[in-house]
Nucleic acid binder design. Structure first.
Lengths: 250, 250
DNA sequence: GGATGTTTAAAACAATCGTTTGACCTGTCA
DNA sequence: TGACAGGTCAAACGATTGTTTTAAACATCC
């Protein structure tokens, strides 16, 4: 391949393009190329599955560049993660004016979050994909990423759901509803499950995503209203096994 | 490469009689120890993150045993996957007597599926965890696993949901409801998200899991009923403004 | 008992991993 | 100008990867 790319064209001390001035701008360029390639590759395949060599090839940088600029593979990864997390820290999806009713807060969350997840790129997607990899095989940065991405959302959602249920955030029904909501949203991160299960769903237009978000919102709010009707501590009925007889809830 | 015997052919010719005689060292025993350790490690950390050495150490087998018995690391992985998939092929969660009403079919699915996912082990858990890894970084077996695990469930769920919606399985609302349902269930696979988000959810007793399944069932059926009220092709209303202006930038 | 075939054991294999090295180039500043 | 610092480069480092090899231990058959 083009592994030995530049050397062939630039080896001559008088390479024409290589003649351009080397200002302080130039060094930052490879740094940024590395960061860009690393963001894509790490979020796509995870920390362990990406090799430094592949990364440098993609960024058209020398093999030693990663260690020089970032002190190592993990240092580069840390910077990638920091960039991605910066995008979820000031997060419009959980930023709504005071006094907005709970139902509207949830609707707003879903309608801004789902399009962000379904987008081909963007910091929200990167952060969530990085976290998805940290969930399955964690790096030393896993706890940090998880807390940073998850906790603010859970707090926001729990408060809204608790308000809708007319209870406090400690109620276990709140956690279950929050999980039901977040699970639905996360499924709109690009993933192979949807591709396999619904090959016809290649429509990722804004309208299709918005329609899906509307579905989740309506679906979830109905589910929450239904949950509200149930007793707070659903002491388990003992005789609940067979599917056939009329075990249709109550 | 295939100097060792292939994974599939080894059981046949004269092996059966010769087997089962060695007292101290029994071939079938180390084979099974390897399979057991591999099932645990592969489903926990994925194919790429597990080394052959670690595997053999865990199984108290020699390093060469993997290549001897399974023809290589991938051969062992293939056998692990086959075992796990055998457990989802004849699947009680989607096996329900004819004539069962759709709502009851879904309830049965959720109430049998969620406890299987939440269990610490079992073939359903292994299959689903293996697939989770195949989703994030795939091996050559990824398409096979995905189809085998996903398609039967999607078909079962789609038919039931379509019946509840009073429409056919091609309706896009069906797919969205199936995703909403399946996404909720899959969140009860042991995962770090729940641990981080809800540290208090360490209760994995049968009662707690059953209560969670009941929640999902009630939540989902309410969501489906709500979805039924909406027009089949929800053309996006334009007068749908976010809580505060400017937040829906794009 | 020797021949044959199967399983285990330890060592070595080539390939690849992340990282380090030292020469080399270029611009800056004394 | 000459020394220095910043940055790139090819090459090599030691460690670890999956796999292969070679020899020995064991069981079975003639």
């Amino acid at each position: 391949m083009s592994a030995g790319r530049g050397s062939s064209g630039r080896d001559g001390p008088t390479g024409r393009a290589a003649r351009r001035r080397r200002d302080a701008h130039d060094d930052a360029v490879t740094r940024q190329r590395l960061l860009r390639a690393a963001t894509r590759l790490f979020s796509e395949r995870g920390f362990g599955a990406v090799t430094v060599r592949e990364l440098c090839r993609e960024a058209r940088a020398n093999l030693a560049a990663v260690n020089y600029h970032f002190g190592g593979k993990l240092g580069l990864y840390r910077e990638v993660v920091e960039n991605a997390l910066a995008g979820v820290r000031d997060d419009p999806t959980i930023d709504v004016p005071d006094g907005t009713p709970a139902e509207e807060r949830l609707r707003h969350y879903i309608r801004t979050y789902v399009p962000r997840l379904a987008a081909p790129r963007g910091r929200a997607v990167w952060a969530q994909k990085l976290m998805r990899h940290e969930m399955t095989d964690p790096t030393p940065l896993a706890p940090w990423i998880a807390q940073e991405v998850i906790l603010p959302r859970v707090r926001f959602l729990s408060e809204a759901v608790a308000e809708l249920l007319g209870t406090d955030v400690e109620d276990e029904r709140v956690g279950r509803c929050v999980v039901s909501l977040q699970a639905q949203c996360l499924f709109y991160l690009p993933n192979r499950f949807r591709e396999v299960a619904f090959p016809g769903w290649r429509d990722t237009s804004d309208e299709a995503i918005a329609a899906a978000a509307d579905h989740i919102a309506a679906f979830t709010l109905a589910g929450i209203r239904r949950t509200k009707e149930q007793p707070p501590c659903p002491a388990r009925r003992s005789a609940d096994k067979p599917p056939h007889p009329g075990a249709s809830g109550h």
